[in-house]
Simulated scan of single mutants.
Amino acid sequence: MHKKIYRSTLVARIKRPVEINFLERKLISTGLFIYENTRSSFFLKKKMIESICIIHLTKKKKHPFYNEIQIIIINVFPEKNIMIHPNEELGILDIITDVKKIKWKKCFILNKSIRGNNSFGSTGIL
């Protein structure tokens, strides 16, 4: 078994631009879901480093085993406001997973099974 890293870009999944004033905080959805026991690391874009960002994982009722990645952005600079635009790249997510090797076994005869006549793999149940 060895480790594999998958990289994905975190994008703001919002409908309108969001302005964040001094000491204000906003929760920005990325629309990206990860499995709840996944090891991952986050790298934020330079623009996001100018603020305080907290990665927030939210459970959804539709997907009980997956968490949506959301980012809480807090503007700590009194000089300027932060603008987040729809589909703007916020950061990069690296997901680290275990990859298992499988062994194939050659087989010359397959076991017979009862199939319906509807189509390939059909159980025959209508």
Rank of each mutant, 00 (worst) to 15 (best):
L27R: 07
K106E: 12
S119N: 11
N81Y: 08
I73L: 06
S122Q: 03
I52C: 09
V99T: 08
I102G: 02
G91Y: 01
R16V: 05
I55A: 10
I54V: 13
V11G: 03
L126R: 09
L27H: 05
I96R: 02
K80E: 14
R39M: 11
K3C: 07
K105P: 00
K4D: 09
L90I: 02
I95E: 02
R115I: 12
I95R: 01
I96M: 09
N117W: 07
E19G: 00
E79L: 13
I96C: 04
K62G: 09
Y6E: 08
P86I: 01
E24C: 02
S29Y: 09
E50Q: 14
Y66A: 09
Y66Q: 08
I28T: 06
K101S: 14
I20H: 01
I28P: 03
K105I: 15
I84V: 03
T123P: 01
L57M: 05
L44R: 06
L44T: 04
K60T: 15
I55T: 11
L90M: 15
L32E: 02
K112N: 11
R16A: 08
E19F: 06
N21Q: 09
T58P: 00
K47E: 15
D98M: 10
T9C: 05
E89K: 14
Q70P: 00
N37P: 03
K15Y: 04
D94E: 15
N111Q: 11
I125N: 04
I96Q: 01
I95G: 02
K45D: 15
N75C: 03
I5T: 07
D94S: 12
T38K: 11
M48I: 01
Y6N: 09
S8V: 13
I5L: 07
I125V: 13
H63E: 10
E24Q: 14
I92K: 12
E89F: 08
Q70C: 13
V11L: 07
K106R: 10
D94A: 12
C53Y: 05
S40C: 15
K61W: 03
A12M: 08
D98A: 11
K101Y: 12
E68S: 04
V99Q: 06
N111T: 11
N81K: 15
H63C: 02
F42G: 02
N117S: 15
I49V: 14
A12F: 09
T9I: 14
I69M: 04
L93W: 13
F77G: 11
I114G: 00
G31E: 04
E68T: 07
K80H: 11
L44C: 08
S40E: 01
G31H: 08
H85K: 14
K112H: 06
N75T: 03
V76K: 08
E36H: 14
V99E: 07
K47M: 05
S119K: 10
T58H: 10
F33I: 07
K26S: 08
E19C: 06
K112G: 04
N75I: 02
D98T: 11
N111L: 08
T38M: 14
M1L: 13
R7M: 13
E88W: 06
K80Q: 12
R39Q: 10
I95T: 04
S119M: 08
I28Y: 09
T38P: 05
T9H: 08
K4W: 06
A12G: 06
V76Y: 09
